[in-house]
């Protein structure tokens, strides 16, 4: 019904063309991500070279993931009145997805996740 014997050969040709196109896309994406990483590294080097206490207080340049988690957990542990209000304001998220957040580059997720939501490799 949907399997087409006569399409095996043409599909192979189309597959090669599409794979070649994906290489072109990957070259562009790889360059973009390499630039992003370069900018992140440069920012860290700049912060480190400034050596000002302010940068350290705000956590800039922290490399240890556990330290970041610990800071985040500590911040979340004792909810202030303001944060409770904020949490209550978010409760609509229960039945409807929250409003989309701003898009951002996530180089870690890029190496872990898959580009298709219904991905078959999960």
């Amino acid at each position: 019904m949907f399997a087409k014997r006569d399409q095996v050969g043409p599909r192979r040709v189309r597959r090669r063309l599409k794979a070649a196109a994906s290489i072109v896309v990957a070259l562009a994406a790889g360059t973009f991500l390499a630039c992003q990483r370069g900018m992140e590294t440069a920012k860290q080097v700049l912060d480190a070279s400034r050596g000002d206490e302010g940068a350290r207080d705000t956590g800039a340049g922290v490399q240890d993931a556990d330290a970041v988690d610990a800071a985040r957990d500590a911040a979340a542990a004792g909810p202030t009145d303001a944060s409770m209000v904020l949490a209550d304001a978010k409760t609509d998220a229960l039945v409807k997805r929250a409003a989309p957040h701003d898009a951002a580059v996530d180089t870690r997720e890029h190496r872990k996740g898959m580009p298709v939501p219904d991905n078959l490799l999960e």
Partner: peptide, 30 residues
């Protein structure tokens, strides 16, 4: 290992998945 290799893995997966493996009418937002 570098971003080009990861991007290639992902780009080909996306294109092949959406056009050959699980063909569907394109929905612009997703």
């Amino acid at each position: 290992p570098n971003d080009y290799y990861y991007s290639m893995f992902r780009a080909w997966y996306l294109i092949c998945h959406m056009t050959d493996v699980m063909p569907r009418r394109p929905n612009i937002l997703p």
